[in-house]
Every structure is written in structure tokens, then in C-alpha cells.
């Protein structure tokens, strides 16, 4: 599809490390039940095979970067987990159960685009959708109106955005809106956070802030995180494993195991070189 796949990767520690992070988290306990189990999962959409016999397991508290070229099925995978897309083959288990819509154990922030008509929506309104936006009725006379606001403000504080509470969403920058979407996703007190490209359209310092924030949620709340990204560089200091998708296939493991010429060549089905240059790793040589 694209001409050259030039995903840049750097070895752990090469990217500037956010100060608030304590490096890699501890390994998830092997006894506890996996959060996500995929076995032989295939997804066909419109006659095209997006995922083909994908199998992997993700344990509680893991921070996973989901990588791969455009169209590799990263967003599709998240939608399978959310119960929005049914796989054509294989089994998916989340917390031991089949995926279903409206699962409160999952917090989800989709790929961000400007919210339409967001001028007349305040940050706290947007975040509040995560609490009761799915409930019927107007919700104008809740017994705990103050309690509702307290919960929303706690979520805003969690993402360091309490000062933005009464700002119109349209006035906020990409990084600030991303915080709000994460706060919204946190409101159902999820145990699994699915974030689709939360780092796109962010400048470097905001990127670091968002990564630090997500890593903190993962470590202090024991939340499992799947973060879709184009660039693994800034994530290397904080992630446990990477899930690399290409041509419908998946490879999962520690970054240093997956992001190698051998593994990626097998995944792409074409010769791929992982080259280290300028203190970063580059994936080069694929014409897809």
C-alpha cells in the first residue's frame, strides 16, 4: 500500500524517559487469569481478511504497545475486543468471557478527531458521558448531582485536567482533549484500557505527558493497557511487551525479541531490516 514502511524504533532507554516513571513494571503474576485471550482469531470485513489466525494472551497489569503499518488491523483488533466486530473464526475471551458491547470493564478512547459542535460542550460534560451517557432519560434530576460532579472531577484530576473542567472542549489542544478522552474512559472504573493512537497529533512534550499518565494508571491501578501507536520509540521505557501486526498476522513479545530483522521479516513475509541509526532503530525495506 504505502511505499516504504519506515517505522522508527529505538532501543530501550534511548528515548527520553519521563521522570515520574519507575521503569518497567513487574511481570504479571502467572497464576492470575489472563485479561485477553485470542485463539486462532480471523476477521474478514467486506471480503478482505484483516486478521488471520491471531493468537495471543495478555495478562493483568501489562502495558502493551500495538504496532504495525496502516491497515494492519490494529483498530479492528480493538473493535473485536469491544464486541463491535465479530470474528469470522476463532475464540476471543476477555476476563474469561466472550466480548460484548457496553462492557464496563473496558475503557476505550478511539482515534481522535475534532469533536463536532464541541464549542457548546464543556470538558466536564464530555467526561460525564463516560459515567452515564449510555443511560436512558435526561439525567437532569439525579439525586446525587453533586456526587456526579465529584466523580467527574476526580477523573479529571486523575489525568491532571481539573483546571480544564469548565472550558469548552473546542478551546482545548489535542493533548488536552486526549486527556479528557482518557478521563472519560476511566469513569466506568475499567480494568482494561484500549487506546487507539492517543499519541497522534501530539507534540513531543505532550506525548511524554500522556505516556507518563497512562503508565501511571497502568502501574498504580494495575490496569491493563493496549495502546495503538505508529511509533514505539517514546513507549519503550514503559511498555512490557509489543504486539506487532502486519499482513493480518501478529507477533507478541518483548520489544527486543519482536523488533528484530528476523521476526519482522517473517511477519511481513518479506525481507525487513531493523537498522540502528542516530540512537534509534528503523524498520526499512518493505514495499507493501
Amino acid at each position: 500500500m504505502s511505499t516504504k514502511h519506515d517505522q522508527r524504533l529505538s532501543p530501550p532507554g534511548a528515548a527520553p524517559q519521563a521522570s515520574s516513571l519507575g521503569g518497567r513494571g513487574q511481570e504479571a503474576s502467572p497464576i492470575s487469569e489472563p485479561v485477553i485471550e485470542l485463539e486462532g482469531v480471523s476477521v474478514c470485513l467486506g471480503g478482505r481478511t484483516i486478521l488471520q489466525e491471531v493468537t495471543f494472551t495478555i495478562n493483568p497489569g501489562e502495558f502493551i504497545a500495538v504496532l504495525g503499518p496502516n491497515g494492519a488491523g490494529k483498530s479492528t483488533l480493538l473493535k473485536v475486543l469491544l464486541g463491535l466486530i465479530r470474528p469470522s473464526a476463532g475464540t476471543v475471551r476477555l476476563f474469561g468471557q466472550a466480548p460484548r458491547r457496553g462492557n464496563r470493564l473496558i475503557g476505550y478512547a478511539p482515534q481522535h478527531r475534532t469533536l463536532e459542535g464541541a464549542l457548546s460542550l464543556r470538558a466536564r460534560d464530555l467526561v460525564g458521558f463516560g459515567l452515564d451517557g449510555h443511560r436512558w432519560g435526561p439525567g437532569w434530576f439525579p439525586a446525587g448531582g453533586r456526587r456526579r460532579q465529584a466523580i467527574i472531577e476526580a477523573a479529571l484530576a486523575e489525568v491532571d485536567a481539573l483546571a480544564l473542567a469548565d472550558m469548552p472542549v473546542a478551546h482545548l489542544s489535542g493533548g488536552e482533549q486526549q486527556r479528557l478522552l482518557i478521563a472519560q474512559a476511566l469513569l466506568s472504573q475499567p480494568r482494561l484500557l484500549l487506546l487507539d493512537e492517543p499519541l497522534s497529533n501530539l507534540d513531543l512534550s505532550h506525548e511524554q505527558e500522556i505516556i507518563a499518565l497512562i503508565a501511571r494508571l497502568c502501574r498504580t491501578h494495575g490496569m491493563t493497557v493496549l495502546l495503538v501507536s505508529h511509533d514505539v520509540n517514546p513507549l519503550l521505557p514503559v511498555i512490557d511487551r509489543v504486539l506487532y501486526l502486519a499482513r493480518g498476522h501478529a507477533a507478541i513479545g518483548k520489544p527486543e525479541q519482536v523488533i528484530t530483522s528476523a521476526t519482522l521479516s517473517a511477519l511481513y513475509g518479506a525481507p525487513v531490516e531493523v537498522v540502528e541509526a542516530l540512537g534509534r532503530l528503523f524498520v526499512v525495506g518493505v514495499d507493501i
Partner: peptide, 20 residues
């Protein structure tokens, strides 16, 4: 319909994932 309608007007993707 107020809350789900508002939610899905602003953010149909998340609303759908939340079961709307």
C-alpha cells in the same frame, strides 16, 4: 433518549462501544 442521543451525537464510536 436524551443522554444516549447526546453522547452518540458527539462521539458515536465511544457511545457504540459503551453499548448505546
Amino acid at each position: 433518549l436524551f443522554r444516549p442521543l447526546l453522547f452518540s451525537s458527539y462521539d458515536p464510536e465511544v457511545a457504540e462501544a459503551r453499548g448505546v
